[in-house]
Design a protein around this nucleic acid. Structure first.
Length: 915
RNA sequence: GCCCGGGUGGCGUAACAGGUAGACGCGGCGGUCUUAAACACCGCUGUCCUUCGGGGCGUGGGGGUUCAAGUCCCUCCCCGGGCACCA
């Protein structure tokens, strides 16, 4: 009987659900494992990326369960956000209706994965019973001094009609739509994430991917240095942050950001017009233009002077847009001799350049003739008290000259050691409707207080115009009373949806709990998350926010009841609320299938019937007479391209030095770039290279799709989809089906063959166990395929005993169960097992059975393999050398020279060095 | 510019602690079955030479350490990602 995946998968999914196989219940007698995968946004349809993220996470959770852990694997939806409002504008459908119908649809799709999700713990962030507690957490943060209202220059997206957090702006554009963002001064709500900067930089005790740690570290951008106070001639004081206080004696001017508040008081009448003009021009520039680093330095003199505190020198104060108000204090001391930006500025405006570092092993620098700033080690010169101190490439106090300068500054009250961060506080106000309302009230006297009753429910907004948020004009919503019963106004903004997703692992524990954000008894058992999986694209957003959130929750006492409950069960809560997730892993991205069909224009010449390219251009709109060979790319190999021109097929040879012009990459490219352009494309509807998982599931079954996704890629890397490859996965499933469901009849049984199969099976346990532990799905499956091959071979030879056969088959099924849960369950049941395969414990390899009887001893001569000999695994050095020398082939080699040295690594290798 | 991650057959990938490079799969080639094709099954498949015993070369390029290097060190090139006038 053929394997009917549709029937099997449907039936078992229903049965698992009916029998509550995946309900997870607190059980203090068993070790727990909280497995979590990033919750999806309900965009409408599950795509291959969801399958790629979720099904291996499920396999891993199943594996942990078989290893004896009480596993919680929940699912939910991150359901607030702009797409729902866009749908409302475009299709006249309420965001709630759009969102909930998408969730309905995606629940069905997720169920088709056959994952061990405990649906009773599902949490949806747009549900009032969820966002009541998002609001509650905001209030706790407000009361705890972590949420504050402040005026700041913020990123305003005219397209989205809202402000955005720094993390959501990339290259001056909104990360979702790619539309430009402008700078605007507004009063908004912030979380003081910068207070946690140092704690966030500390990753000890958590097992997170190196790239994510690096990205977060980079993002936080800690710089060590000093804050130096410069007194202006007007009497004002301007603090300046510098990482190089040791170069203070070389500061020849000062620069303020155009938006700096002191510019007004500092500038003299004669410079007012010029400065104002400059400020207007700077303000008119988009963030994008301002960030261009290659343009010429611009700026203008204010007419004001500051006093350099280290040497009382009078230095001019300029305004320039290369100084950013958002970093440090928005003012810098300029040391043109040792900072390239300051150098360029000084040359541009003829300002003096005063070197204070004598390069290591070099002569003194001359400020008039230098061609670039000197940034390197040396000795301090012309620097008063720190003259002669050595300067190195080290940062902060680790650099002797910096340490000396800081000491001097602190001694003389001119400055202090300081640390500055690139990261800014988290802006959480959004001028949008579809989010959790900010539960704050503005009283008539101008003070602010938290809304007394939670949740503040979203009103049924009547109209979505695409303009300003409907909340901003909803009088019925805005009008309220304060705690004294006087008329007051509500905040019309909603919370950044990243706030909702920052605490969802806690809501999963008790999604319907109404006494607090989560049930402390559940939390005491399940927290923290043991394994978290998801995309690395969230490294400086969700993954950073959620770490901050847990620390902030800890500090405002949200976990107090949980700690009490833990102690009652004898669990020490110390340090358990410092990080939300102990271990984290990122899957890569599934890209679109390599797709021929690009239109190429090739120039070159004919050589022996082949066309050798000199230049290749990818141009989808090229006319057919644009070059000697113009046509569709049909096939590509390493060095050749098959191009279908208007009338015939041409094989184009691509030499290493051919010029390649690829859209989106400027300048002249090479063959590698062409290769990557043709190969790697993200899946997108506009490119027409999407793969619909639903169709594949219907055709091949969920088990096959799961298995293929886990087999065909290095999970942490991802790669382009290959629709041909899936047949191998399906073939494997069918082979397992045949092996497991058709009777095996032994013929002439041999003890050796039986033991060989048993050995193979037990060795497979070890491999699969190691690989699943490490998320190496592809090699785990390769090991299982090898066992499949062994079983097929055993069936052909019929030399294996029935016992050995059955043991190997059962092991194959149990080891495969986390990856392909349906087919293994069906075969398991057909083989007469009453209890679910998913309740079996993970097998352990019997070391005696798994031990190799013989091993291959590699014999090398001068490091090159010349022969292989089968030997006993416990062979000693002498015997191994003797065995190696005994080989006929080796004897032949030995005639060519004298043995000078023998390296023996029994039982694997003997290397004979001859000359 | 700085910081991560990469570069291995036609393709996806594998190689635990320096010790048999290419496991496993896709694709391709040959064969069996079939009226035929598909499926299935069997065999071959890095590359060049070969007297068919085997031998040379081969993990982005160059150099080094070592009895032995995909793996370690130096250097350069290329690809992907992150940050970036960050003081």
């Amino acid at each position: 009987m053929d394997y009917d995946h549709q029937k099997t998968e449907r039936e078992w999914q229903e049965r698992w659900e009916a029998e509550g196989l995946y309900r997870s219940v607190v059980d203090w007698d068993r070790p727990k494992h909280y497995a979590l995968t990033m919750l999806p946004y309900p965009s409408g349809d599950l795509h291959m990326g969801h399958w790629y993220a979720m099904t291996p996470s499920d396999a891993r959770a199943r594996y942990m369960r078989m290893k004896g852990f009480n596993v919680l694997f929940p699912m939910g939806f991150d359901a607030f956000g702009l797409p729902a409002e866009n749908a409302a504008v475009q299709r006249n459908i309420h965001p709630a209706e759009w969102t909930w119908s998408n969730i309905e649809r995606m629940r069905v799709q997720i169920r088709s994965m056959g994952a061990m999700i405990d649906w009773e713990r599902e949490a949806v962030s747009c549900d009032p019973e969820y966002y009541e507690w998002t609001e509650w957490l905001f209030r706790r943060f407000y009361e705890g001094g972590i949420a504050y209202r402040g005026e700041a220059i913020v990123n305003w997206s005219p397209t989205l009609q809202t402000v955005l957090a720094n993390e959501q702006v990339i290259d001056g554009k909104d990360e979702r739509t790619g539309q430009p963002v402008i700078q605007k001064k507004m009063e908004q709500w912030f979380f003081s994430i910068t207070d946690y900067a140092d704690e966030l930089l500390n990753f000890t005790g958590i097992d997170w991917p190196e790239p994510v740690k690096a990205m977060q570290t980079n993002w936080i951008g800690r710089s060590e240095g000093a804050e130096v106070i410069f007194e202006m001639e007007t009497g004002d004081e301007v603090p300046v942050f510098t990482t190089r206080p040791d170069t203070l004696w070389g500061a020849t001017f000062m620069v303020l950001a155009p938006e700096h508040p002191l510019v007004d008081t500092l500038m003299t009448e004669e410079h007012r017009v010029a400065v104002d003009e400059y400020r207007v021009a700077a303000a008119a520039q988009s963030e994008l233009e301002r960030m261009q680093t290659d343009k010429e330095k611009t700026g203008v003199f204010t007419g004001g002077y500051a006093i350099n505190p280290v040497n009382e020198q009078r230095i001019p104060v300029w305004v320039a847009d290369y100084v950013l108000l958002s970093y440090g204090s928005g003012a810098i001391m300029a040391v043109p001799a040792h900072d390239q930006r300051d150098f360029e500025f000084a040359r541009q405006f003829g300002l003096p350049i005063a070197p204070v570092i004598r390069p290591k092993g070099g002569d003194r620098l001359n400020g008039d003739t230098m061609e670039a700033a000197y940034i390197g080690p040396g000795t301090m010169v012309d620097s008063g008290p720190i003259d002669g101190v050595v300067t190195t490439d080290a940062k902060g106090r680790a650099n002797p000259s910096v340490a000396a300068a800081i000491d001097w500054l602190e001694e003389h009250g001119a400055g202090t050691e300081a640390i500055n961060y690139r990261m800014r506080d988290w802006l959480i106000s959004r001028q949008r409707y579809w989010g959790a309302p900010i539960p704050m009230i503005y009283r008539a006297d101008g003070t602010v207080e938290p809304a007394p009753d939670l949740p503040v429910l979203l009103p049924e907004a009547p109209e979505f115009t695409g303009g300003p948020s409907p909340l901003a004009t909803d009088e019925a919503f805005l009008a309220t009373v304060d705690s004294d019963g006087n008329p007051a106004r509500r905040d019309s903004d909603t919370l950044d949806t990243f706030m909702c997703s920052s605490w969802y692992p806690y809501r999963y524990l008790s999604p319907h709990y109404d006494a607090s954000a989560f049930d402390p008894d559940e939390a005491a058992y399940w927290l923290p998350v043991d394994t978290y999986t998801g995309g690395a694209e969230h490294a400086t957003m969700h993954l950073l926010y959620t770490r901050f959130f847990t620390k902030a929750m800890r500090d405002v006492g949200v976990f107090a009841d949980t700690e009490t409950a833990m102690r009652a069960h004898g669990r020490d809560p110390e340090g358990l609320f410092d990080e939300p997730m102990t271990q984290s892993r990122n899957q890569g991205q599934i890209l679109g299938e390599e797709r021929p069909g690009d239109r190429l224009v090739v120039a070159g010449e004919w050589v022996d019937g082949r066309f050798v390219a000199e230049s290749i251009r990818v141009d989808d709109h090229a006319a057919s007479d644009a070059g000697p060979v113009v046509g569709e790319l049909i096939r590509r190999t390493e060095r050749t391209l098959q191009v279908q021109t208007a009338d015939h097929m041409v094989t184009v040879e691509v030499p290493e030095d051919a010029e390649v012009e690829v859209p989106g990459i400027d300048g002249i490219n090479d063959v590698t770039q062409l290769r990557h352009y043709l190969e790697v494309q993200r899946m997108s509807k506009s490119k027409g290279n999407t793969v619909n998982p639903d169709e594949l599931v219907e055709r091949y079954g969920a088990d096959t799709v799961r298995l293929y996704l886990m087999f065909a890629f290095d999970w942490e890397k991802g790669g382009p989809w290959d629709s041909r490859g899936i047949s191998g996965a399906r073939r494997f499933i069918e082979d397992v089906w045949k092996i497991g469901t058709t009777e095996y009849e032994p013929g002439t049984v041999s003890a050796d063959a039986s033991l060989a199969l048993r050995r193979a099976a037990h060795q497979t346990i070890t491999k699969v166990d190691r690989d699943m532990e490490a998320f190496k799905w592809n090699t785990a499956i390769a090991a299982l395929m090898t066992l499949r091959n062994d079983l097929l071979e055993a069936r052909r030879t019929t030399a294996v005993s029935l016992e050995a056969w059955n043991e190997a088959v059962d092991l194959l099924l149990v080891l495969l169960a986390p990856i392909a849960p349906h087919v293994t369950e069906e075969i398991w049941s057909q083989r007469g097992n009453a209890e679910s395969i998913h309740l079996q414990s993970w097998p352990e390899a019997d070391p005696e059975v798994a031990a190799d009887q013989t091993v291959t001893l590699v014999v090398q001569v001068n490091g090159k393999v010349r022969d292989r000999v089968e030997v006993s695994p416990d062979i000693d050095e002498e015997t191994a050398i003797a065995a190696a020398m005994a080989s006929e082939r080796i004897q032949e080699w030995l005639t060519k020279g004298e043995v000078r040295k023998i390296i023996a690594r029994p039982p694997n290798l003997v290397n004979l060095v001859i000359n």
